[in-house]
């Protein structure tokens, strides 16, 4: 049974259906790739599922709950977290604080009287060491390089200890060494039974990492199956290369 699925999900901009009655299902312990040409609706799908964009129709099923409206502040409570196509860090605070902010108390009063503890620091330290940013922990996030920013955003998402991770183009523009670090993180999450959703353009990485693949075009699902299978389908080749 999928831990996250959508039924007839719709998101429109004016008369354009960016996500057009889409049924997708994501299972625990799997990496599921969302691929498709630019403008096919991948990022819009993720933004709609996480409440960044209000949905215009359909349902989201998560953890046995059916939702027709998703609030961004409720996403974490359903065990969902995400990264963004362009890393959205808390720029003018330290790298360490960028991690601590997701480890500490959510309740207003609880947060007011809470100081981060040695346990919080240990958890933040572990993930920062894993992505190679421990030495940069006291620098403001705005001073990091592009690749480091991507790594920090992924580290922050992983610190959420969610069940469902939505990664929007985590490998875009990165060096092979950094790609390997992120690939390892994705595999580790899968091994821990999390559901990993990967929006990606690099088909070699999709083949290497994904267990299942959906191909979107024009807001609709045009193919699904294992990466090797879907990437050979004529409608997929046509979507990427044209007739």
């Amino acid at each position: 049974m999928p831990i996250l699925s959508t039924q007839k999900l719709v998101k429109s901009f004016g008369g354009v259906h960016a996500v057009d009655h889409v049924d997708l299902a994501f299972h625990g312990g799997k990496i599921t790739a969302l691929v498709g040409p630019n403008g096919s609706g991948k990022t819009t799908f993720i933004n709609t599922v996480t409440g960044i964009l209000p949905m215009d129709g359909g349902e989201i099923h998560v953890g046995g709950v059916v939702m027709r409206r998703m609030n961004p502040a409720d996403v974490a409570a359903y065990g969902i977290t995400r990264t963004f196509q362009n890393a959205r860090l808390i720029q003018q605070i330290s790298v360490l604080d960028n991690i601590l902010v997701v480890l500490t108390e959510r309740n207003v009063w609880g947060a007011l009287f809470e100081r981060h503890t040695a346990l919080h620091l240990e958890k933040a330290g572990n993930i920062l060491k894993k992505v190679g940013l421990w030495e940069k922990r006291n620098e403001n996030a705005e001073n990091l390089s592009y690749g480091q920013r991507k790594l920090l955003e992924i580290a922050r998402a992983v610190s959420m200890r969610a069940n469902i991770y939505l990664f929007d183009e985590p490998f875009a523009g990165l060096f092979p060494e950094t790609i390997e670090v992120i690939s390892d993180i994705l595999r580790t999450l899968r091994d821990k039974a999390a559901s990993v959703v990967l929006v990606e353009h690099n088909m070699n990485l999709v083949r290497e990492l994904a267990d299942y693949c959906y191909v979107l075009d024009g807001g609709k699902v045009i193919a699904e199956g294992t990466p090797d299978y879907v990437l050979k389908q004529p409608q997929v080749i046509e979507a990427y290369l044209g007739k």
Binding site: G51, N71, F84, R88, I90, R106, V108
Partner: peptide, 13 residues
């Protein structure tokens, strides 16, 4: 202050 929408995604009202 820096990104309210992203802060909401972390579970903060």
């Amino acid at each position: 202050r820096e990104d309210e929408e992203a802060t909401q995604i972390f579970g903060y009202a």
